[in-house]
Write a protein that binds this DNA or RNA. Structure first.
Lengths: 189, 189
DNA sequence: GACGATATAGACCAATTGGTTTATTATCAA
DNA sequence: TTGATAATAAACCAATTGGTCTATATCGTC
């Protein structure tokens, strides 16, 4: 009906949400199909290699959304600690809105499939790298050396990833706030 | 057959390893049964509520092992940064030995089941709290205020959890080393 | 209108899922 | 030795899993 790759889009979006919430193995194709409204024929038309290919594509899309968000925040905020704080606040709102179910869209799938699946391993590595690059750039522009910026940027993505897990477990945004505070100390000391 | 709860023990240990590596939903009961050598009858004898109960017990056991390790390290090292560094090194060796498959024994299952499963939610919350308490104590004994120590301790567990994910994705122990370094800065600045 | 490609529909598949049930066998205290 | 309890064995279950296949629409284009 109408717009051609609509089902493809819906499949990906549904996959992002479901994998993020319940994991890769914990989400059946039937559930993705039902949520997306796409027929099974379409799934295997757009993703001939099946579930794993859909997952890889879902991770890519979700990763790009995050990267774009970070880039926008980097333009808006000159100080890296401000960028991080704002992003953590956004994540907190997002967590609350999902009843603390929607954490990092990459991590859940990663922990089930990396390094067993080479495809997903490569994709997720590239995604995290893209996020780290944005933070590193912001730190460099604020006067940090390249080597130092890389370390702090890597650690920032690491810590935020951890904070999303704690936020889920504690059903609270406090871990995200605390993470922003601690990272600020590391940027400005 | 001899020693009575041997099958129970084996079931738990197998569950810890498999859930940690492939997740809760990604691990079938058949696989746990095969790895442990226990018969199916025993599984439902020891864990009448099935997979979820086994998972909860597996998390508890794994959590206690970590807590015990942290307590030992806390006795050995007076400076908290030394404790953290040593623990991160241990984790790095552990990751390497498992080909970067065995990260945090709690996180993978948590991301698939919390907060959907109330049982696992409560258990995992208590486990993380026990770890944080050990770190907080070490920080207090090194002269930090109680409030400050709590924040830094929470962040330590948060960051290490994130580092284990990055270590898995990067197939490297560098994220763990970097995390130890950054945390040291936070403890001593 | 006809063509070839894109897309959809859904029946069908073997294999596996977590779980139940019933019968049997060890174990050990009285 | 008996009797109760703990433990094991395995047949059995409905439901779901990811995936395949073939037939049919639907499409833009010549």
């Amino acid at each position: 009906m109408a717009n051609t790759p609509l089902h493809r889009q819906n499949l990906i979006e549904s996959a992002v949400t479901l994998f993020r919430t319940q994991g890769f193995a914990g989400t059946g194709l039937s559930e993705i199909l039902k949520k997306s409204g796409a027929p099974k024929g379409s799934l295997y038309h757009y993703f001939p290699k099946g579930k794993e290919e859909l997952a890889a594509e879902a991770l890519k899309v979700a990763g790009r959304v995050v990267e774009k968000t970070l880039l926008e925040l980097a333009t808006k905020h000159k100080q890296p600690e401000k960028l991080v704080k704002t992003y953590c606040q956004m994540l907190g709102q997002w967590m609350e809105a999902s009843n603390f179910r929607s954490g990092c869209p990459i991590t859940t799938t990663v922990l089930e499939t990396v390094p067993q699946s080479e495809t997903i391993s490569k994709v997720s590595l590239a995604i995290f790298d893209s996020w780290k690059a944005v933070i590193a750039n912001a730190l460099i522009e604020s006067g940090m050396t390249k080597a130092e910026a890389k370390k702090k940027a890597d650690f920032t993505i690491t810590a935020i990833g951890g904070a999303l897990i704690q936020s889920r477990v504690q059903q609270s945004t406090l871990p995200l706030d605390n993470t922003a505070s601690q990272l600020k100390l590391l940027f400005t000391s």
